[in-house]
């Protein structure tokens, strides 16, 4: 059985002390341990940003890719080998700026993967510019007169994209986040967990104190996660009260079921040299 120790790596952690990423990393390790996953069977895919260091800090298979492209890479890994548990990690910029197109398309494809969005409402690694989830009016290095645009709402965006599993966690509530990760990982289909994550260096508004006063748990208020319209309503809530938990889930056929060749052994384990093209050549004769 894999232990927390097994998931440690020798890489030196370079996140700021107090960064919300620590909570996400710890919750993910706990989820893997509690689910009893083998580390060789888990693949982490990360984009560019502070979250991208996840692959350095968790001892599973990993591929750190380029900005915004976590989802197509993760989708293909799962198609290539369905025995792998594929978990994508993306920042809010990764998921909803440069990678927004992939987000909607991944959701409608419904590959059996998990996407964790490290959502700190700011650009951290590039030192404090606006993010697509920054609230309107926020003054940042790149928006000295305040953000002009309306913020992307990851929850309603995911619902509108027909994502099968839509949840939000909070990096400051590890027990709750661990449970959300476990549910997302075991959910058969595209599962997004948007994680509210304080950025201690660049976001002075959405702090631990800010969230502590506001977050509440959907499951404690009798939310029905199969009710899409109620999920939209809860998803629009952002003010004195901010909901966390599972907004919506519905099971539909996963992407790989569409491909006849994936009914056999995992693609990566199939033999390459068994092909005989002589039948195909007849069409050209």
């Amino acid at each position: 059985m894999v232990t927390m120790q097994d998931l440690a790596t020798p890489a030196t952690n370079t996140w700021c002390p107090g960064c919300g990423n620590f909570g996400i990393l710890m919750a993910m390790k706990r989820a893997i341990v509690q689910l009893g996953l083998e580390r060789e069977k888990v693949v982490a895919v990360t984009g560019i940003g502070c979250h991208g260091k996840m692959t350095n800090y968790i001892k599973v298979n990993g591929i750190h890719v380029i900005h915004g492209r976590v989802l197509p890479v993760a989708t293909a890994i799962k198609l290539a080998n369905r025995e792998l548990t594929v978990i994508g990690f993306a920042g809010d910029g990764d998921a909803f700026n440069i990678g927004m197109g992939h987000f909607s398309h991944a959701a409608r494809r419904n590959p059996d993967i998990t996407l964790v969005v490290h959502d700190n409402l700011i650009y951290g690694l590039t030192t404090g510019q606006t993010s697509p989830t920054s609230k309107r009016g926020l003054k940042t290095k790149s928006t000295p007169r305040g953000v002009f645009e309306v913020a992307v709402n990851p929850i309603t965006q995911a619902l509108a994209s027909d994502a099968s599993f839509v949840a939000r966690g909070y990096a400051g509530d590890m027990r709750h986040l661990t449970e959300l990760f476990k549910e997302a990982i075991t959910f058969p289909g595209f599962a997004m967990v948007d994680v509210l994550q304080p950025c201690v260096a660049w976001n002075r508004i959405n702090t631990y104190d800010f969230y502590k006063e506001r977050v509440y748990k959907l499951e404690e208020e009798g939310h029905d996660p199969t009710d899409l319209m109620k999920a939209y309503e809860r998803g629009r809530e952002w003010g004195d009260r901010i909901p966390i938990g599972v907004f919506y889930k519905v099971e539909r056929p996963v992407y790989r079921e569409n491909f006849p060749v994936l009914k056999g052994a995992p693609l990566a384990r199939q033999k390459l040299d068994g092909i005989d093209i002589s039948g195909l050549l007849k069409e050209f004769a």
């Binding site: 693949v43 591929i63 890719v65 890479v73 989708t75 293909a76 890994i77 198609l79 290539a80 080998n81």
Partner: peptide, 10 residues
């Protein structure tokens, strides 16, 4: 990037 993901997986 999909091609790359599949190739990484072997």
């Amino acid at each position: 990037t999909m091609v790359l993901g599949a190739a990484y997986a072997g």
